[in-house]
């Protein structure tokens, strides 16, 4: 027996560590990554590897040479950012796009604010939005790359054949601009339930399969990495708003099911909006934040010039987080304070 060790209580620690939480997020992303690689092939894998390597390398370099602090790469947060960044890119993007993204995500959005825990905005989303605005053509080039699995499943083959180079949301947006009503677009697009839930081609790499994303969500809940509040409220807000709008004018506005399962809504709600650093702490704050994300997404989709708005809405609500943390306090144990 050595000298006694003395410290304040508690003397034991739970199973969470930053690294274990990030590892769980990575595991939850595995289904989405598998789907991306399966249906977009080696091109997807290439972007993924470049993105992750880029993020980790930049975090290391900045930590080592600019901040001169012990590196924070061992906590795996840079890897998570790298994977999320890649899942937000089209598979047809050239190799340097994820590298530029990595510089923006880690270099600008994360490390300038002081590294992990200090950033105001979700790094992967900052990079995606920057790339989307700077390289609109590359970032919306949804040309299908060669998949690893052969598309012999009939409904999948149908999708590949019918693929017009636009996402479902893009199709609706284009259609409405040329004066076609929503029900007609739906008919032309032939959106089947398989497409909405299982595999939908065209779009960012992470948006292939809603089911894969939901699987990740279940895993995160099971491991208690995140609470269901934010994703559920985001989806519910979108559902309620789109239901109201589509009931008012079904020719102009798309319905809830279509809006929930297309585009980046699930990816955003489950993996981006729940980012610890850039989401509020208290339940009340989280609800307001999630309602904001859902509402802004719907409004951008319906009225904005972009067909998709989840990234923007999350970033906008990110900036409200400090305020939400200040004014939305958790429910205190005791309502009243006794004088004395």
């Amino acid at each position: 027996m050595d000298k006694l060790t003395i410290s304040h209580s508690p003397h034991v620690h739970g199973r969470f560590s930053t690294r274990s939480l990030m590892k769980d997020v990575l595991i939850a992303l595995v289904p989405a990554v598998i789907m991306a690689v399966a249906f977009y092939g080696w091109a997807a894998l290439k972007l993924l590897v470049i993105s992750v390597a880029g993020c980790v390398a930049i975090e290391y370099l900045i930590g080592r040479f600019l901040l001169k602090s012990p590196g924070s790469i061992s906590d795996l947060s840079a890897v998570v950012t790298g994977v999320l960044l890649a899942l937000n890119l089209p598979s047809s993007a050239p190799w340097w796009i994820p590298l530029v993204g990595a510089v923006l995500a880690i270099g600008v959005a994360k490390m300038t604010f002081g590294g992990i825990g200090q950033n105001l905005y979700n790094p992967a989303l900052v990079a995606r939005v920057f790339l989307l605005i700077s390289f609109p053509v590359i970032m919306t080039n949804w040309t299908l790359t060669e998949p690893l699995v052969s598309c012999t499943i009939p409904w999948l083959q149908g999708q590949v054949d019918a693929f017009t180079g636009a996402t479902p949301l893009g199709l609706v947006s284009e259609g409405l601009k040329s004066g076609i009503a929503v029900p007609e677009i739906m008919q032309q697009g032939q959106f089947t339930w398989q497409q909405l839930l299982l595999v939908s081609l065209g779009g960012s790499m992470g948006e292939v399969s809603s089911l894969a994303l939901l699987l990740g969500f279940v895993y995160l809940l099971f491991r208690r990495v995140i609470r269901p509040t934010i994703p559920v409220v985001v989806v519910a807000t979108v559902a309620v708003l789109t239901l109201i709008f589509s009931l008012i004018n079904p020719a102009r506005f798309t319905g809830p099911v279509f809006n929930i399962f297309t585009g980046g809504l699930l990816l955003g709600a489950i993996f981006m909006a729940t980012d610890y650093v850039t989401s509020p702490m208290s339940f009340k704050g989280q609800v307001i934040y999630a309602v904001g994300i859902g509402a802004i997404s719907v409004f951008i989709r319906y009225f904005g010039s972009y067909p998709e708005g989840v990234s923007f809405s999350i970033l906008i609500m990110n900036s409200a987080v400090p305020l939400l943390n200040k004014y939305c306090k958790p429910r205190r144990f005791a309502g009243e304070v006794r004088n004395g």
Partner: peptide, 12 residues
């Protein structure tokens, strides 16, 4: 021994 303290990630 306690583990090395790291930055708060504001996980809540």
């Amino acid at each position: 021994p306690r583990n090395q303290e790291m930055t708060c990630i504001r996980c809540g």
